[in-house]
């Protein structure tokens, strides 16, 4: 049998054996919020936004595979609070100023905050001092907005066949580093997938920031996850 059946918040979901809970939920039209997971990139389970309870244990849905008869809890008050906490933490860990960020309206971090009803973080800001790399002619890297999701790291390796980004240091000092003294020294191209997969405004193409006016941007119109939930209603 290559198919398994399990439940998410009581709803029966059919999935392919070996599939992750996140992918199975996506296919079934159940939205589990996520930040570091992205389409077919190898999931790394680092942001923990997709935390769900699987048979009582908290697991990251992006890396945990489905099991026959598993009971998955997704939208419980506890998990909703935990996800809010994580999004809050990502806000206070960096320096995010949505009001003048070009990514506003396209930003997945901001969109999740709206979906979760966050008006202001509950934790005090840490105000780290971070750098901005403008050296590349067509792309810039603003570490203030980086949430260390690692999408660019994986996309550069797996999709672009390069190795432009890696994480260096550890703990609270962990940061994104480029393969060279600055971005212009790397073989990064503006058309690389590594640039387009950034969920926030950390890796941005230059000179296109305001092409779409505020109010007509992706998450201005519909909340994040809406596309997945639409599938479920069909």
């Amino acid at each position: 049998m290559n198919r398994v059946t399990f439940t998410i918040d009581g709803k029966e979901v059919k999935a392919i054996r070996g599939q992750t809970i996140l992918k199975a939920a996506d296919a079934a039209g159940v939205f589990i919020p996520r930040l570091c997971a992205y389409r077919d990139l190898t999931p790394n389970g680092s942001c923990r936004v997709c935390s769900v309870r699987v048979n009582g244990r908290i697991q990251a849905a992006c890396v945990q595979t489905v099991a026959e008869g598993a009971i998955v809890e997704n939208e419980t008050p506890e998990l909703l609070e935990y996800r809010r906490n994580i999004v809050d933490m990502l806000f206070v860990e960096g320096n995010h100023f949505c009001m003048f960020c070009e990514k506003s309206g396209f930003c997945e971090l901001q969109a999740l905050a709206y979906r979760f009803g966050i008006k202001a973080p509950r934790y005090p800001f840490l105000y780290p001092k971070r750098d901005l790399d403008m050296s590349h002619p067509h792309v810039f890297l603003d570490h203030n907005r980086c949430i260390l999701c690692g999408r660019c790291v994986r996309a550069s390796q797996d999709m672009d066949g390069k190795n432009v980004f890696q994480f260096v240091e550890r703990g609270g000092r962990k940061r994104l580093q480029v393969n060279g003294d600055s971005l212009s020294e790397t073989d990064l191209k503006a058309t690389d997938e590594a640039v387009s997969v950034c969920p926030v405004g950390a890796l941005m193409k230059k000179r296109v920031g305001y092409e779409v006016p505020v109010g007509r941007r992706r998450y201005d119109e519909k909340p994040i996850g809406d596309d997945i939930e639409m599938k479920g209603e069909k």
Binding site: C47, R48, N85, I86, M89, P124, G172, R173, K174
Partner: peptide
């Protein structure tokens, strides 16, 4: 623990500093 965290996941990387404060 803050010094020794690998910094991979958000709750440990950020949460421990907030808890310490």
């Amino acid at each position: 623990f803050i010094e020794e965290s690998c910094g991979y996941c958000t709750p440990c990387r950020v949460g421990l500093t907030l808890l310490k404060n």
